[in-house]
Design a protein around this nucleic acid. Structure first.
Lengths: 337, 337
DNA sequence: CTGTTAGCGCATTCAC
DNA sequence: GTGAATGCGCTAACAG
């Protein structure tokens, strides 16, 4: 029963059946008041009979504007980004846009073709979590459509972006550990080339400076790309002569890797980390997590984009930077609260 | 610097700059051999200068076929579905398709408009995780494009689908608990109206019959829609006079809710459940999980769809049903392996 | 109230 | 090798 390519009914088909011109069908479908009730009903009947649907591709061509926005995330398998995507979805739908989704897999070299492909498909705007620091392709895309950066800032491009309080959150969580009396806090971080990596290290460092504790470089491990790397790094730290007495992890995967390492080593250490995650409260481990609403990053990014699209003919406003707040939560307190 | 609507260069613009007709530009861009090297170079130069990109909307209209497939999932925030989406992405990209994503939020009544919208956008095919059992709108969509069902089967529609071994997996995991000597296994399930809910209960039941144990109806709780509901149901079970000695949960969220309840009640019970999840191995709780590759469901669904699209002009093959295998894994064994 | 004309940007077909 | 005409499905602008 599946229609073959090209077999779809057109407005002319509907018109023929309803004994009117295609133009009248068009009017009926757009709820144009200037159509008699009788014809209107005949048209609707024909539409139903044929299962007719307006061809959005043709409309886009005619009207200009595809009704789509493009979203590029680095890793949809990470709950952080799937929630971000969900937030984008939510607002996009609200404003009548569809979302064309791409996943760069954190491979910066694949990103340009993904972006180009989305532009080819006439997306009216883009929301991008940039995978790398080379961003000329994004500058090129900005010649065509507005681009909003999410989770990571643009490098030298003048455009909107939505970030979390990376520095502040990291500083605050680290400060909690220090306030608890720790002086040997290990830092387990993602690649420092990433904005979030750098900012969160900065926050970690600042917290130390504020209380006059010198971070021990032997306890700083960066460039951890996944949970397994974090697990190895943590096990390594635990084998050192001078062990850390607490850990700070820069994201959910790293926290999870560290926790796995502690479990395997049958050790308990206080862990602080960026990103909350499922079951963090039932691990029986004192956790200090920087929590925030990942959906909200997507929502805000979509709002910034939609706002720009709504004012396309006006003078474009200066680029804006929105920050999604973080808050530090304590999880897995010994009293099983 | 962002282009205003309608300001994008066309083939004519490129042609004018390169002093050729639009037709020649078209030829160059499709690598048609019948163009002299000199003009070819002029055209490419003009393309670069203008930042020209072919308008995929116009191409779609002309060529028939948008190069997009639609994907509708019920809950992108659930890692299960975001991984499924990732699998779809992967295969779609491989075959040159883009993915137009929608999230039904498990609201069956929103699904029809989402589907219609995707069809309007001329998606060449659809992959759907149906939210409800009313599926006439999907039958309607099938008049336009092929539809592949994922994770849940079609109800009375003749079309491809990809499922996991719901019955088998549930039976096998339950059998493990029974083999361990349990005779009072509680069942914590999602709504039985959902295919997965019904099948997994069937598997649970079958495992009991096979060893001649009568399931206790007082231990069966269905209709749990989220983690919080599962937590409450579990706490309730624990307060019964005749407690269960083990739990079977029909999905990841339910398992997590049950685990949270056990944690709060400071109790340890063996838990079996469908779906593996992060950190399942470090909970210090004996878990028996039905594990499978969620990405693979998406990949297979995309392959079935692409295959149909590749043979649109031939006689459509009969509908196929693919099953993604499950395997039972033990997690959180006492020896911390 | 309804129909005709024209063109969105591109590629197929046919000329030269 | 290259260009001109034509139409994909739809709708704004103009008839009538």
């Amino acid at each position: 029963m599946t229609a073959r390519r090209g077999g779809l009914p057109t407005m002319h088909d509907v018109g023929r059946l309803a004994q009117v011109s295609a133009m009248t069908v068009s009017r009926v479908l757009k709820n144009d008041p200037g159509v008699s009730t009788a014809t209107r009903e005949r048209v609707f009947a024909a539409v139903d009979r044929l299962g007719y649907r307006r061809n959005q591709t043709a409309r886009s061509l005619r009207l200009g504007g595809s009704g789509m926005i493009g979203l590029v995330v680095t890793n949809l398998a990470n709950p952080f980004y799937s929630r971000l995507a969900l937030g984008v979805q939510e607002v996009a739908t609200e404003y009548g846009f569809r979302v064309l989704l791409s996943n760069s897999g954190e491979q910066a070299d694949r990103e340009p073709e993904l972006i180009d492909g989305l532009v080819d498909h006439q997306v009216e705007g883009l929301i991008v979590v940039p995978a790398g620091s080379r961003q000329q392709h994004l500058a090129a895309a900005m010649r065509h459509v507005p681009v909003v950066f999410a989770a990571r800032p643009p490098a030298g491009l003048d455009t909107d972006c939505v970030l979390v309080e990376d520095f502040h959150g990291a500083r605050q969580a680290t400060a909690r550990l220090l306030a608890d009396g720790h002086t040997r806090v290990a830092f387990l971080g993602n690649p420092p080339a990433l904005y979030t990596g750098a900012e969160r290290l900065r926050g970690f460092w600042a917290a130390h400076e504020e209380v006059g504790v010198e971070p021990d470089n032997a306890l700083i491990r960066q460039g951890l790309v996944d949970s397994a790397a974090a697990e190895r790094a943590t096990l390594d730290l635990l084998e050192q002569a001078e062990r850390p007495t607490a850990l700070f992890c820069t994201n959910n995967r790293i926290s999870q890797g560290s926790i796995r390492a502690l479990y395997k080593a049958d050790t308990t250490l206080p862990v602080a980390g960026f990103d909350d995650f499922d079951l963090s409260d039932v691990l029986g481990l004192p956790l200090t997590l920087v929590s925030y609403d990942a959906d909200e990053i997507g929502r805000q990014a979509a709002r910034l984009l939609v706002d720009r699209l709504d004012h396309r003919d006006a003078e474009p406003p200066p680029s804006r930077r929105v920050t999604v707040p973080t808050r530090v939560v304590r999880r897995g307190s010994p009293d099983r609260g």
